[in-house]
């Protein structure tokens, strides 16, 4: 139906997600990964910054690898709403015709991506964990499917742009290079407050933790039953960050920015201790690449034991403090192997 000429489309775009000046780390991960795509295609790497008073974000986008930054700076974009973001983004895509558009698979990214992809009839692949580009410029967007045992490659040959949302934590961000040069271009803002369909009455956010950087993680699951103390104790002994399954996050025991799994972060620490976590496929997808996995669970049939290097069947309220004691003992030089 919508016949387009793919050769009219070029450049790789990366959406830089900021809320009140705070940039989600997945944006920098994508900018860094996208460098390898443009090396392949010889195109420009373009960052999109949408928000209000975003000069600092624009500077950092260049330092993080963008050749060009497109900026839509207006009060209508703060705080984030799907309809003005989608409309602005759509207008820019239609005008400038990018070949590839990468968006972090955060709640925000997954919220508005469709509002761009639908009106432009773009191909949109959700939650990718690997991307590369073939010689003909076709994006190979890979994502786990069928409960995580298959990696599906999704392609979009006849439509443009080729859009993908990418899971946070799967790629590494590069440190900023402050002497990098890049062009900054302010674009026309096409959205007016009067045309918006939604209004944010209240927004309350705290610090968001970045568990993807941690070398060691102790993750809490439904088994903790609201008591984080054993997790804290063990995390202290190991010098580890605290993370959680979705169950523990949904119950409000642990903040959502620490959720591991398909709809949370992907981590690959040296050590991942799953405490009171059953091992559902959606959880495993976020931690299966950890170097060493340890499971603490009182159910010997919990699937997590099949995906762990070391497991112990026992009550976490007893095992965690005992293990913490035993490990702290290990810090003493005479006990260390």
């Amino acid at each position: 139906m919508t016949d387009i000429d793919p050769s009219e489309y070029s450049d790789v775009w990366v959406f830089v997600e900021d809320h009140d000046g705070d940039v989600m780390s997945v944006s920098w991960e994508l900018l860094n990964e996208a460098k390898t795509l443009v090396e392949e295609t010889g195109e420009e790497l373009v960052a999109l910054v949408i928000g209000e008073d975003v000069d600092g974000v624009v500077e950092e986008a260049i330092a993080r690898g963008a050749d060009r930054v497109l900026v839509a700076d207006d009060g209508v974009f703060e705080p984030y709403r799907a309809d003005p973001y989608g409309e602005q983004f759509r207008a820019m895509v239609e005008e400038r015709k990018p070949s590839i558009v990468l968006i972090g698979g955060t709640h925000t990214g997954r919220d508005f991506a469709g509002r761009v992809a639908v009106p432009t009839h773009a191909g949109l692949t959700a939650d990718c964990t690997e991307i590369d580009v073939a010689e003909d410029g076709v994006l190979q967007a890979r994502r786990p499917a069928f409960g995580g045992n298959v990696l599906a490659t999704i392609i979009c040959e006849e439509h443009r742009p080729q859009m993908a949302t990418i899971r946070p934590g799967v790629f590494e961000a590069a440190p900023p290079e402050n002497d990098r040069d890049g062009e900054i271009e302010r674009v026309d803002v096409v959205v007016e407050e009067a045309d918006t369909l939604t209004e944010v009455l209240e927004r309350s956010t705290g610090e968001t933790a970045d568990v993807t950087e941690a070398d060691r993680i102790v993750a809490a699951g439904g088994g903790i039953d609201g008591d984080l103390e054993p997790i804290r104790r063990l995390a202290d002994a190991l010098g580890a960050e605290i993370a959680a399954s979705r169950h523990a996050v949904d119950e409000g025991w642990v903040d959502g920015s620490r959720q591991i799994g398909q709809t949370g972060k992907t981590v690959r620490p040296e050590l991942y201790v799953a405490v009171g976590i059953s091992g559902a496929v959606q959880h495993l997808e976020g931690m299966n690449d950890s170097e060493v996995v340890v499971a603490i669970n009182n159910d010997p049939n919990a699937p997590i034991f099949d995906h762990a290097d070391y497991g112990i069947v026992g009550d976490l309220f007893e095992v965690c403090p005992e293990l913490a004691d035993a490990l702290e003992g290990a810090e003493q030089p005479e006990v260390t192997l």
Partner: peptide, 17 residues
């Protein structure tokens, strides 16, 4: 707009268990 270009079985991570 999108098509499945291929499917690959992911090798299960080999754990000590």
């Amino acid at each position: 707009p999108t098509n499945v270009g291929g499917m690959e079985t992911i090798e299960g991570v080999d754990r000590e268990r």
